[in-house]
Computed example of a mutant assay.
Amino acid sequence: MLDAMHQYLSRDFDLTRHNTFGLNARSAYALTVRDEAELPSLFTIAERAGLSVRLLGGGSNVILSENYAGITAMMATRGLAQSEDDTGATLIEGTPVKAGTVWSPIR
Results as ranks from 00 to 15, higher is better:
1 M>I: 12
1 M>Y: 11
1 M>G: 14
1 M>A: 13
1 M>K: 13
1 M>D: 12
2 L>Y: 07
2 L>D: 07
2 L>H: 10
2 L>G: 14
3 D>L: 12
4 A>P: 13
4 A>T: 15
4 A>E: 13
4 A>F: 09
5 M>C: 05
5 M>N: 07
6 H>W: 06
7 Q>D: 14
7 Q>R: 14
8 Y>C: 14
8 Y>A: 12
8 Y>D: 14
8 Y>N: 14
8 Y>G: 12
9 L>Q: 08
9 L>E: 05
9 L>K: 07
10 S>V: 08
10 S>P: 00
10 S>F: 10
12 D>Q: 14
12 D>Y: 04
13 F>R: 07
13 F>M: 08
13 F>N: 04
14 D>C: 10
14 D>I: 13
14 D>W: 10
15 L>K: 00
15 L>Y: 02
15 L>N: 01
16 T>I: 10
16 T>L: 09
16 T>Y: 07
17 R>I: 01
17 R>M: 04
17 R>W: 01
17 R>P: 00
17 R>C: 03
17 R>S: 04
17 R>T: 03
17 R>L: 01
18 H>L: 10
18 H>F: 11
18 H>D: 04
18 H>V: 00
18 H>G: 02
19 N>H: 00
19 N>K: 01
19 N>G: 06
20 T>I: 04
20 T>P: 00
20 T>A: 10
20 T>W: 13
20 T>Q: 10
20 T>H: 02
21 F>I: 03
21 F>S: 07
21 F>N: 08
21 F>K: 06
21 F>C: 02
21 F>H: 01
22 G>I: 01
22 G>C: 03
22 G>M: 05
23 L>Q: 08
24 N>S: 07
24 N>V: 08
24 N>K: 09
24 N>Y: 00
24 N>P: 01
25 A>N: 04
25 A>H: 06
26 R>V: 06
26 R>D: 01
27 S>E: 00
27 S>D: 05
28 A>Q: 12
28 A>R: 12
28 A>L: 03
29 Y>I: 00
29 Y>E: 02
29 Y>M: 03
29 Y>F: 09
30 A>L: 02
30 A>S: 12
31 L>W: 13
31 L>N: 02
32 T>R: 11
32 T>Q: 10
32 T>P: 00
32 T>H: 12
32 T>W: 04
